[in-house]
Design a protein around this nucleic acid. Structure first.
Lengths: 232, 232
DNA sequence: ACCTCAGTGTGACAAAAGTCATAGGCCCGG
DNA sequence: CCGGGCCTATGACTTTTGTCACACTGAGGT
């Protein structure tokens, strides 16, 4: 069990609640229900009707679509301080995708009613929501672009580069941690386990990366980026 | 040149402006600038900074991503009474995609400033925007799902079925009109001209559709839908 | 009537993606 | 130390996708 945190401390960090007064934060904090999820546990499933929104306190949560033949496509991964599923709250529809905990996680649940009450007294909130939704939309467009135009290899290189931005610098290059399984990585780039495995091997053979189980070292990010330009 | 219309009549029909008073509509109508575009003309390009939002009076407009090698992926097609590009107005970023007129079209342009003034006096508006943005997000997720999980053939069948919903019933089936070029259709489903051509031929050979140039007749929509279930 | 031009249909390939089967590694519990 | 469960790597193969080249059609314009 993670140590208890003050709900208001958590909510204060959430972008859509920035700028609320102490009293307003308090109002929400009193009504926010903490929920603990174990690794892999489902928060909600595509098509469920939406009763409220989630705020992640710790752990990470993935939002994904799944296909009848068992494949998955991750839409986004949200970590501490993110809100999840604000949108269906406003358009009244069901969840467009499913969500599950990647690691053990604690989230707060805020009911639709409470959130709507807040919006009434604080019209700034919908504007903030629009802002984060804007970012989400951009992300989705980015995924579409990658799926429509690029190969698995290019998408894999893209995630590696994205991860490199927050990676650890070492003497021999930037060091990053791959997700716990190749399956997870495959879902992020919309393909299957085997192709991830093959392409990682190939990148290593080409000396663009070095792998030690889940730890990848990128000796030269620029050279990796260059691979994205040329078709070969 | 299309006949002149009263701007306020056009704006009244737009979802995000539903519920405004006459005075407020008037305020916008006075400030909305009409613009005429010819078929194929560009409204804005991905990466442009965003100064306002568009409302389509007539004609249709497509929003799309384009790839360095000349391919395109259509994100949505908006017709009369739709607003376009509300989002970057709120998050302050640039346009995430480009837009061009499919046919000759007239649109109204409303500047960022005017729109923000409206939002201040009328907090209902952002809520309406959230609603339409919600729909947009769902659409994008749908595109991702199709790109990630299905084949060109399935995506083609999907659009045909979607078009059938607004098609014309005849004695021999439902009749629909394909877009003016196969290229356009290809961009909608994220592939190339040739594959559209081939797959349409194949569907006709299988007697799932009948084609007479751009007019397609679907004798049995259920049978077409069944093709989506089975891998073969 | 003829030329041009944009869009089409198709065959032949090449490349990429996905499937299936198999072998092996690693960790954990008994 | 052994066995089961889970994940990984990899070869062999199929299907799908995309590219290129080329011939054909139909509408418009002069």
């Amino acid at each position: 069990m993670p140590p208890l945190a003050q709900a208001d401390e958590v909510l204060r960090r959430v972008p859509i609640f920035k700028g609320l007064t102490e009293a307003e934060l308090q109002f929400l904090a009193e009504r926010a229900v903490p929920r603990d999820y174990q690794k892999g546990e489902i928060l909600f499933t595509e098509g469920d009707s939406c009763n409220g929104l989630f705020v992640v306190e710790n752990g990470r949560v993935r939002i994904f679509k799944s296909s009848p033949n068992g494949r998955e496509q991750i839409l986004t991964v949200e970590g501490p301080g993110s809100s999840v599923a604000e949108l269906p709250l406003f358009d009244g529809g069901t969840y467009p995708a499913s969500s599950a905990a990647i690691e053990d996680a604690r989230v707060y649940f805020i009911s639709k009613q409470d959130f709507h009450s807040l919006c009434l007294v604080h019209p700034q909130v919908p504007l903030k929501v629009l802002k984060v939704v804007g970012g989400r939309l951009r992300k989705l467009v980015g995924i579409i672009e990658e799926l429509a135009f690029t190969t698995v290899r290019a998408r894999l290189i893209s995630v590696l580069i994205r991860m490199a931005k927050t990676g650890k610098k070492t003497a021999v290059g930037i060091e990053i941690q791959l997700p716990p399984s190749n399956q997870e990585l495959a879902s992020e780039i919309g393909t299957v386990r085997e192709l991830v495995s093959r392409n990682l091997s190939r990148l290593q053979a080409e000396e663009l990366i070095y792998m030690d189980s889940k730890t990848v070292t990128i000796p030269d990010v620029t050279r990796l980026k260059a691979e994205l330009e040329t078709p070969e």
